[in-house]
């Protein structure tokens, strides 16, 4: 089978549509993170319900992406950077679908926690985590759009304070141990913290996939956290 330029031009058009669908998922997920954090801090159950509804959109797009992806693979058998992009897009669609699920987890906790007594310091910490995670998602999106390898490498450092805050949440839990009326609420907020930490990890994964698309070399970013030599990424 000879690959004809015309048919591959058609493939590239369809690939662009697929890419936009996947990027639409992460755009929506970024918006959902902001809304979910707001909902859980302000006990806004209407906002929480909106987050759950938006996740249905992400799930529907996820299914559409998989159908389009399968069709493209079956019809065109792409190679080279096209094959890498296809591999990355199917991986990212799963990552973004799970990002949406984390937001739903937070939104459901917002509904559960409504009316419970709360601790401002913990709320502030969760808000701070949200404020750190959303720029991570935005940076990952922009590094994809610009295909900027240097920008992808910013993500591990951006993720470090999120991990620290998540680890610190357990100390906050211990601090309220003598207040039984706060325990149920605080225990749920640990799950919120954990969900935001996962979203941060997913943003890093997004950047790693972008780096692979650019370089053709699979290499995690773990080594960048410690500031070690990154010469294995070409």
């Amino acid at each position: 089978m000879t690959i004809h330029r015309d048919s591959m031009a058609h493939f590239h058009q369809e690939l662009e549509v697929l890419e936009n669908k996947v990027l639409g998922m992460v755009d929506r997920a970024e918006q959902m993170v902001e809304m979910a954090v707001e909902a859980v801090i302000e006990s806004n159950v209407d906002l929480a319900r909106t987050v759950v509804d938006l996740d249905d959109e992400i799930d529907a797009t996820y299914l559409e992406v998989h159908e389009r992806w399968t069709s493209l693979m079956a019809r065109f058998q792409p190679m080279g950077s096209d094959l890498r992009k296809m591999a990355v897009l199917i991986q990212l669609s799963t990552t973004f679908e799970r990002m949406g699920d984390q937001c739903v987890n937070i939104a459901k906790i917002a509904q559960f926690n409504e009316g419970l007594p709360r601790v401002d310091r913990i709320c502030d910490q969760v808000r701070e985590m949200g404020d750190l995670v959303r720029p991570m998602i935005r940076t990952s999106i922009e590094s994809w759009v610009r295909q900027d390898l240097d920008e992808t490498r910013l993500l591990p450092a951006m993720d470090e304070p999120v991990d620290r805050l998540n680890a610190n949440m357990y100390k906050e839990m211990v601090a309220v141990a003598n207040h039984p009326e706060l325990l149920e609420w605080a225990a749920k907020m640990i799950l919120v913290s954990r969900a935001l930490e996962r979203v941060g990890d997913q943003a890093v994964d997004f950047a790693e996939q972008t780096a692979y698309l650019i370089t053709g070399v699979r290499s995690g970013f773990d080594h960048l956290v410690a500031g070690s030599n990154d010469a294995d990424i070409r």
Binding site: I3, R5, S7, M8, A9, P78, G80, S81
Partner: peptide, 9 residues
């Protein structure tokens, strides 16, 4: 890359 992705040939 251009050949295998159908950008020419």
């Amino acid at each position: 890359e251009d050949y295998i992705t159908g950008r020419f040939g």
